[in-house]
């Protein structure tokens, strides 16, 4: 079973040379720590920066330079700032190659829910609806089950949707799965996790073919 850093580490392997990448809040933010340093990648934050760098050193933080999680950040050489409409032109116009975001639920047809629990939590969707409706390459980073042990990979999402039929890949603490033909295709197992355990933790239709390799991270 992977921890949050393990999930981020596995997802980092999906990041390719020349990619512009948008990282959501939570586990996705950790991905930046594990991207190979022999490739060129630029991180976009939808509040208006391309070429995001690491957190600043103590005393170097600038209230005017933050990421979409409202955290103080730095920029890399070659970075740029822009307004929010330009930022979403990059996203909606498919100039960003890879979007990595968290989710509360994902369904077997690629629907995603991550912005609202009616009556309990209403924080808003932020940029998530624009991101999932626009990007071709969306990876969801999340735990396989919720705090009550219930599957987050479902036949149908029970929570209000963020987007329909948009998720292509899910990386959880237990597995890597691709979504196509209204099924979750099991691609890899997390170290020490059996196919049976993944099956038991997956409510949606799970397609298993042949030997499922263990992740190499």
């Amino acid at each position: 079973m992977l921890d949050k850093n393990g999930i981020a580490k596995r997802i980092a392997k999906e990041v390719q040379n020349g990619y512009y990448v948008n990282l959501g809040i939570g586990i996705p933010t950790l991905v930046a720590n594990f991207v190979r340093d022999d490739i060129e990648v630029e991180f976009q934050s939808e509040n208006g920066v391309l070429g995001m760098g690491p957190f600043p050193f103590e005393g170097q933080e600038d209230a005017d330079i933050i990421n979409a999680g409202k955290q103080t950040i730095t920029t890399m050489p070659g970075a740029s700032f822009f307004d929010s409409a330009t930022s979403f032109s990059m996203i909606r116009g498919k100039h960003v190659h890879l979007t990595i975001l968290g989710a509360m639920e994902v369904s077997e047809n690629g629907d995603i829910a991550n912005w609202k629990i009616p009556g309990k939590m209403v924080k808003g969707m932020g940029g998530a609806m624009d991101l999932v409706a626009s990007a071709d390459n969306i990876i969801v980073a999340m735990m396989h089950t919720n705090k009550r042990g219930e599957s987050k990979l479902l036949k149908r999402c029970s929570l209000p949707l963020t987007g329909v039929g948009c998720v292509t890949k899910v990386v959880t603490n237990m597995a890597v799965l691709e979504i196509k033909n209204n099924q979750f295709y099991l691609i890899e197992r997390a170290p020490g996790v059996s196919v049976e355990e993944i099956q038991n933790a997956t409510e949606g239709t799970l397609f298993i073919e042949g030997e499922i390799p263990e992740m190499n991270i």
């Binding site: 939808e46 930022s87 909606r92 932020g126 940029g127 409706a133």
Partner: peptide, 25 residues
Amino acid sequence: PQGTLAEKCRAAQAGFPAFYTPAGY
């Protein structure tokens, strides 16, 4: 949605009454 909010402002600035977006479909 954040991108829609940005564009609704920009549309008002630019004199567009409305626009189509995939966000939220």
